[in-house]
Design a protein around this nucleic acid. Structure first.
Lengths: 349, 349
DNA sequence: TGTTAGCACTCGGCTTGCTGGAGTGCTAAA
DNA sequence: TTTAGCACTCCAGCAAGCCGAGTGCTAACA
């Protein structure tokens, strides 16, 4: 660290103040924040150097200074003092997550909502990735003589269904054969390994019913496909509008960006495991200029899986938001594991 | 109609122009729009009278005039010339809706998205109401010895699932008994008629398994409850931000209002059947000040069921948006009917 | 009676000019 | 290395003034 103690204090104070007010911070303000231990001239010198080093910049000659992305980076990684959560906060969060019942997707949704609300930002979460999930059960449920529902259950607790329709009446025996064949072939398989070829290869196993079952097999492919792709939840968008740093145009662009699920999924998947902060200018997307993303994996069965995080202005309260995001990620992981724990132990018995 | 022909033309021209520009409209502008058939002084007289009648108002003495809610009402109900959709538009919409596959909920979602995009407003839609839906099939699918999934299929094509968990191992025979009992008791029942008492009454039917099945029965209650409540989709929120009439605060309040599903459901259910336009000031909600809602039922099996509509600034292009909404409602109804048609004819055989 | 031309009047929006204050950089002294 | 002092910069905010769009009224006209 080539920065002296006082310069670091100055920088930390500047960032703190800027986060609080959003206005350029002047030397006198910093003096006050450092309890008048030095004079404003000293601070001015320090700030001039910090500017030269790329940590601060001035909107114009006679204004105070605002922190650059580099300053935020340094602040987050080394200068900031995280505010730890109170017992009560933790219990609130745990309670809220517990209340989601037995459905993982709903749990993620609720957690996303709650995180958005407590941080005052928008939140982004993904459901557990289906990539590594294994099929625990497939069920074919006849609805009428010409339609059925396929149900897929994974070992990560995800349940998905898809309807399919036939152009002629189907023998109820066909559903049984299909169900057995699907389970025999795919139970225990990773979703990612199942593709069109594997499914097409099944037609032979169905004997006389092969042709009749084609619509169901197509539906099965879609179903697997859908389950592999993690769902993305975006909540609390309107929080962004309340923030003075955002003008409508910016929020509009940002929301458009965030609602493109694939792009967002891309962005998330490029992020290393653990808790990450992406600061506006750092990533090459113009839509994210001026916004930061705090995102963390949550673990599922000991492995990093989906993401939970928040999206807000660069000038957000990292000292509170980061611990919150961490706690939410941990709590979601715990809850999901618990949700699955019982099954894990007893499955396949 | 106590308004003379020319006054109506003047009012229509004023509203047209105001919708286009958002600026107060002056007498000269109207003269131009009426092809100089009369002088500006005449128009001024007319506009003064229209002001007196409550159709126009001035932001200040020396400005043009802007239409009141009453003017918009009259415009929409009698003055406006709807722009009919081109063949191509219709085909585009139909194609888009067809592409949604066999799932009613997805279809509604896609339609909502498309309507938002074509109108440049936000869109609000509800899935078919479960209120009048009847149970076609209930399935209990064991996942492990301590967990199962309940699946509910209605005659309106809706499929819902819910997981449930038991604190001890459950005999697989119990699932069969439960499944049979549920189907025997509730198949053909309207969802709205199923409540806690009915479900509790079932415990007796389950004999020795009654106690073990309690978690499943609880889950069943929740499942019915969830299915009765129509889902509300809100799409294209960011479109609102692009509109110059909306400042962030307003959009924020509006979005908060729209994301409260219950409130929104209330608002919709208070609306008469068919196509409706609710103009900002008309309804008593302060959040809706300055915004209009165009909403229509779609029919399901000949009966009015869910809603599809858009939310946008009072100053929106009604002449285009109203026919679009009508067409979408009709198309969604048709597609849903078709989706269910085959089943209808063949069910219960 | 309805329409029109003419005219005086109103009033918000824009431009211009000015001032105060916050903040800076530099210099010289401690 | 720190500090006090000073000249300089530049924005925010205010006041004054002009411009122009639009109005209402009146008197004449068809």
């Amino acid at each position: 660290m080539q920065l002296g103690k006082r310069k670091r204090d100055v920088l930390a104070a500047t960032v703190d103040m800027y986060i609080r007010t959003g206005e350029p911070v002047g030397s006198k303000t910093v003096v006050k924040m450092l309890n008048h231990t030095v004079s404003s001239a000293t601070i001015r010198n320090d700030m001039a150097e910090l500017s030269a080093m790329g940590y601060l910049e001035q909107p114009h000659t006679s204004a105070g200074r605002i922190p650059t992305s580099a300053a935020f980076r340094l602040y987050i990684d080394h200068l900031m003092r995280k505010r730890s959560l109170s017992e009560k906060d933790c219990r609130n969060i745990d309670g809220l997550i517990k209340s989601a019942g037995d459905d993982p997707e709903r749990l993620i949704g609720e957690a996303s909502q709650a995180l958005a609300q407590t941080t005052g930002c928008a939140s982004v979460t993904t459901t557990p990735s289906g990539q590594a999930a294994r099929i625990r059960k497939i069920e074919v449920i006849p609805i009428s003589s010409r339609s059925a529902v396929l149900l897929l259950a994974t070992d990560t607790g995800i349940i998905r269904t898809r309807a399919c329709r036939f152009d002629r009446d189907v023998d109820s025996r066909a559903f049984e054969v299909l169900s057995k064949a699907l389970n025999d072939t795919f139970r225990g398989s990773q979703l990612a390994d199942i593709g069109l070829p594997q499914v097409q290869g099944m037609i032979g196993l169905l004997g006389e019913y092969g042709l009749a079952c084609v619509p169901a097999l197509t539906a099965f492919c879609h179903l697997v496909q859908e389950t592999v792709e993690a769902d993305v939840f975006l909540k609390g968008e309107s929080n962004l509008l309340r923030h003075p740093d955002y003008d409508p145009v910016r929020v509009g662009r940002l929301l458009d960006f965030l609602t493109k699920r694939e792009v967002l999924a891309d962005l998330l998947s490029a992020i290393p495991k653990g808790l990450n902060v992406v600061i506006g200018g750092e990533c090459q997307r113009p839509e994210l200029e001026g916004t930061s993303i705090i995102v963390s994996n949550y673990n599922l069965g000991g492995r990093p899986d989906g993401y939970i995080g928040i999206v807000g202005p660069v000038r957000m309260d990292y000292a509170a938001a980061i611990p919150l995001t961490e706690y939410f990620a941990a709590a979601v992981g715990r809850a999901l594991d618990e949700m699955m724990g019982i099954d894990r132990d007893n499955s396949d018995k």
